[in-house]
């Protein structure tokens, strides 16, 4: 039973990583850049939800929507102000800028909201489910997180396969120049990608803080790096890869904590990444299912 409990916790944490990893992988697929500020957008999402609930007293679900809206605008602004001027610049310049934006967001949050951790109240208003005489406990956060992850996965898959904008995103990710010759506005396609990724980051931030209820300006950085790892693990640029990578990473992390060592769990997670990349440099699903977005 404890094994099952750990597995559920792992899948739940992994679902959060997966939702974050989708943002990394979509932006990478379209703009061919690693947006290292993505993790900090998660933190902003958490804070917006926290503040709207605790100070303004809005209902949890409304706070989620506000948080998504704020992060969407933030993501699009970051792209416009920081990355767009660097289109065509060497990728190292873009990478350094992304790290700069990440520190900017962390410090801005510290200035605005202080550096002490806040206690986040879960946005999920249900009680845990006990099964097998209390031996197996499923938290409502787990259920909501895993369901959100599945819904997002299905929605994104349909979006990229069926809609005009989704197909345009795939076209841009494959060949920007040819996409322009089709009449596709590459800049607005990139903006839409950042908007979707950032809205997902808001959801991920709130789910993460609901399950692990502390919130500080650096809350997003570790999950951000792990989700990036998950995206690479699954095959960066691939939507199913981000999902698979995220969930596996979550399971590995929780199992390492439970059965090996809490202190070493992060080291184990990254060691697994190194191993996978040694054997399969393109990531788990990075080859045949190259549905890059």
């Amino acid at each position: 039973m404890t094994f099952l409990n750990h597995l559920i916790n792992g899948i739940s944490l992994g679902s959060v990583y997966a939702i974050i990893a989708l943002g990394y992988t979509m932006v990478y697929g379209i703009a061919k850049m690693l947006n290292f500020a993505h993790g900090d957008v998660i933190m902003v999402g958490g804070f917006v939800s926290f503040l709207t609930v605790s100070s303004a007293g809005v209902p949890a679900i409304v706070s989620v929507l506000i948080s998504m809206a704020v992060c969407t605008v933030l993501g699009v602004l970051i792209e416009r102000l920081a990355y767009k001027p660097l289109r065509g610049a060497p990728s190292l310049a873009v990478l350094i800028t992304a790290i700069g934006v990440s520190y900017f967001l962390q410090n801005a949050a510290q200035l605005l909201w202080g550096s002490d951790s806040k206690v986040f109240t879960s946005v999920v208003p249900f009680n845990s489910i006990s099964l097998a005489g209390g031996k197996l406990v499923i938290t409502p956060e787990s259920i909501v997180t895993v369901s959100a992850c599945i819904v997002i996965m299905v929605a994104l898959t349909l979006f990229t396969a069926k809609t005009k904008m989704g197909k345009a995103m795939r076209a841009v990710s494959e060949d920007k120049g040819a996409a322009q010759l089709m009449g596709i506005n590459v800049n607005s396609t990139i903006s839409v990608t950042f908007a979707i990724g950032s809205a997902l980051a808001a959801i991920a931030g709130i789910l993460l803080c609901s399950a692990y209820p502390t919130l500080s300006p650096t809350t997003g950085s570790m999950p951000g790096i792990k989700a990036f790892t998950a995206a690479v693990f699954g095959g960066i640029g691939s939507i199913p890869g981000a999902m698979l990578g995220g969930i596996l990473l979550g399971i590995i992390e929780i199992f390492s904590k439970a059965y090996i060592s809490t202190e070493l769990s992060d080291a184990i997670v990254f060691a697994v990444l190194i191993l996978v990349l040694l054997v399969k440099p393109e990531g788990l699903l990075g080859r045949h299912v190259r549905e890059k977005v």
């Binding site: 197909k167 795939r170 076209a171 494959e174 060949d175 120049g177 040819a178 010759l181 190259r290 549905e291 890059k292």
Partner: peptide
């Protein structure tokens, strides 16, 4: 365009 540049994954 030169070299066709079809979207090969589509």
């Amino acid at each position: 365009p030169e070299g066709r540049r079809v979207f090969s994954q589509m």
